[in-house]
Design a protein around this nucleic acid. Sequence first.
DNA 1: CGAACGTTTGAGATGACTCAAGCGTTGTGG
DNA 2: CCACAACGCTTGAGTCATCTCAAACGTTCG
Lengths: 252, 252
Amino acid sequence: MLTENFLKGRRGSSLSLEEHAVLESVISEVRTLSPRSMIVRAGEPIYHSTLLIDGFMCRYVDDREGLRQLVAVQVAGDFVDLHAYPLKVLDHDVATLTAATVAIIPHGKLDQINATMPELTRKLWFSTLLDAAVHRAWLFRLGRLDAVGRVAHFLSETNVRLQLAGLSDGTRFALGFTQTDISEICGITNVHTNRVLRQLREEQLCVFRSSIVEIQDVEGLARRGQFDPGYLYLSHDPFKDTAAHQKQNRFA
Amino acid sequence: MLTENFLKGRRGSSLSLEEHAVLESVISEVRTLSPRSMIVRAGEPIYHSTLLIDGFMCRYVDDREGLRQLVAVQVAGDFVDLHAYPLKVLDHDVATLTAATVAIIPHGKLDQINATMPELTRKLWFSTLLDAAVHRAWLFRLGRLDAVGRVAHFLSETNVRLQLAGLSDGTRFALGFTQTDISEICGITNVHTNRVLRQLREEQLCVFRSSIVEIQDVEGLARRGQFDPGYLYLSHDPFKDTAAHQKQNRFA
DNA sequence: CGAACGTTTGAGATGACTCAAGCGTTGTGG
DNA sequence: CCACAACGCTTGAGTCATCTCAAACGTTCG
């Protein structure tokens, strides 16, 4: 089932069998995409949205000198550019990172869902708000963490998200990113990313290789990155019974 | 009209008179809020959303040591926590920055709109996606700009958003933020914010006083912060006929 | 008037950047 | 199947933006 991973494991919003069937039925096409190819360009009107079935995609903004900031990484099960449905035009570019398989859903079909299925519409809306929640976690990462913390936070997040899609066993997953990709996610230079990855390795927290990421100390990595998965709206807390990230509230 | 500024000036999604009337009719209460007070706490279920009529509010995440990262600033006309309607619980706290007036809309009423008014529902969805687009601009700001650029970008953005609400004449507006607020928005220390503001003053770009912000060189400030208002989805380009921010695309 | 809070400035420390070079891996065409 | 080009990774050395700590000053308000 192509839509199998969409909203899987998300609190209170996973899809009913009927809703899955409706989504399957509005898929107009399945496409295979090459790695490192641009899919949607900022500012150009689009008339369909893209559900990511397999592989990794990203969304990014380039600065004046062409230096890139990724604003989102999408994994299997993500509705990559569903927000293009209400927005009509995107404020950023979308590209593949690795080879990918996607399902195409025309906006006209979403109009039909919007007009006739309020509950499914609310869940589609919910899924775009999950993306926004991830944006906020990334803002925290960039605004408040040092370089090691940023990478630790990103890898912790990615581990949990891939677990939802069945692509991580909780400690190991295939990512296929370069160190420069990590840099463009974490707002640091690729030279520094290299040193940060070495440090995570030396501290026995995590081994990053372009092909495989292996987290040796899940809780320690989360602590180093102040990672608290609340913003992922999971049905199950992956850290239940650990004290990895009990937060201090300065008003408490 | 309380909902007057909601989605005002946003491309393709401003409300019809009838839609304004519906929104007005679902307001259960108007409240006055004190400055610096917490309104919604992360993780607690809420059953209404808040439309900001006047004043400034913010959304933020605190780190382990209580250091704060703002993830959004809300101005008059913003639906501060509409995303709490599909999400049910928020991943961050919400507070006032200044004294504020808000209108309360119960989620039950939004259920009715969701069930019977697909077009208005799409516009409400749209407004939450505008917030996400602003999050992305903030990610760019934190990931790719130096301290001076970050502050310049924030002040440029705020100027445009306040213009939409009729609260800036295009160069001057009241903000009422401390330098520490700016720090928590831009991910820098308050000591450094002070030096950055001095620099903007000395470069004749902008004078920030807690009470009044005066932009002396709108285009120069935008250039310094690589500010491109595309992500605000305006009906009118405020920089039309200027060359302030023509972007280089590295694929062009 | 005094307390609390916000702003300003200085001096020294440091995390991340830049520039530069060398090394490893992969894919491809001769 | 080898050679080489392209790309990504690694390391070193020097620089710079921002941070930290500290103190003084200004403003507001009870």
